[in-house]
């Protein structure tokens, strides 16, 4: 398949499916809590509604208030294009693409945080300060995880790194990456996606002043980011190198589904941590990735 055809196809599928994930999480939470909960497709309705609405923009905000979410969305989408889907290599694979992916996610963070700071509200300042500070440790964890994959496979390209069977440290790597997933997507032990007006949150507070299409873009971007991290986790841990394409895709889909349910269960069963223990949890995730790296290293040397 030519890349000109493949990239749009992938984009349609991935971007179309991404809003399902928050829906599934909410359904799981409702189910555990004994409620009926919102429909799985709720985010689609929200996005469609927001996209049609007008925008109220703070008198203080600059055009960056609207450009920021757009930049973040494009960056996340570009990052997910770099991700291979099992044996189907990424349409745009090259040596070092994994670093581009990580830094595109950082660019997305730059866009959202800059836009959030535009209004000068102390709430946004608080959220942004937390987001960028905790990202420091999360970044260390991601680099350690990527290094461990790289040591396992001797490669710096996502397509080669994610294909083979995992090494000895797969369990550690999975646990570390899952924790990073929760932190990066502002899920429960780190942040509470349900509270909108409290001082205890990171991500939600950054979107507080946004409305209309920019808010839709932010929400969709967050869903795509969740999908990206789930895909990364599933492909890093499961051996997909040997199986045929349809089977691999099915396995990936099932894996993402399991991860999503896992996120939902974590959210139902855990309370949000106190802020001072967030660095501790993230450091734990970093150490898990680091020890996975060391095990991969020892496994390679032996």
């Amino acid at each position: 398949m030519t890349p000109y055809l493949e990239v749009p196809l992938r984009l349609v599928v991935l971007l179309g499916l991404a809003p399902l994930l928050p829906g599934i999480i909410n359904k799981v939470k409702a189910w555990v809590g004994g409620r009926r909960g919102p429909p799985v497709l709720q985010l689609y309705y929200d996005l469609a509604r927001l996209w049609r609405k007008g925008v109220v923009m703070s008198t203080l905000a600059s055009p960056g208030f609207i450009a920021g979410p757009a930049v973040a969305w494009v960056a996340v989408v570009a990052a997910i294009v770099l991700l291979p889907l099992g044996p189907a290599e990424a349409p745009f694979a090259f040596r070092g693409d994994v670093l581009l992916m990580i830094y595109l996610l950082a660019l997305a963070r730059f866009g959202t945080t800059w836009a959030a700071m535009e209004t000068g509200s102390a709430f946004e300042g608080m959220g942004v300060a937390r987001e960028v500070s905790y990202a420091v440790i999360a970044e260390a964890a991601i680099i350690a995880a990527v290094l461990s994959l790289s040591v396992q496979t001797g490669s710096v390209s996502l397509s080669a790194m994610l294909a083979p069977a995992p090494g000895a440290g797969a369990v550690l790597l999975a646990a570390g990456l899952f924790t990073v997933l929760l932190a990066e997507n502002c899920r429960v032990p780190f942040d509470d996606p349900n509270t909108h007006l409290e001082l205890t949150m990171i991500h939600e507070v950054m979107a507080l002043d946004h409305s209309g299409p920019p808010l839709a873009v932010i929400l969709h971007g967050a869903a795509v980011k969740l999908l990206l991290f789930s895909l990364l986790l599933v492909e890093a841990v499961l051996p997909l190198g040997g199986v045929s394409a349809p089977v691999a895709l099915a396995i990936i889909a099932a894996g993402v589904f399991v991860v999503t349910i896992g996120v939902g269960l974590v959210e139902s069963l855990l309370a949000r941590f106190a802020f001072r223990s967030v660095p501790l949890l993230l450091t734990t995730a970093f150490l898990m990735c680091l020890f996975a790296l060391l095990m991969a290293w020892k496994g390679g040397a032996a």
Binding site: G54, V55, V56, M57, S58, L208, S211, G212, P213, P214
Partner: peptide, 13 residues
Amino acid sequence: HVRRNGLNRSVTW
């Protein structure tokens, strides 16, 4: 798109 939908400047929150 934002321009098409209409943009109001106001104190947001």
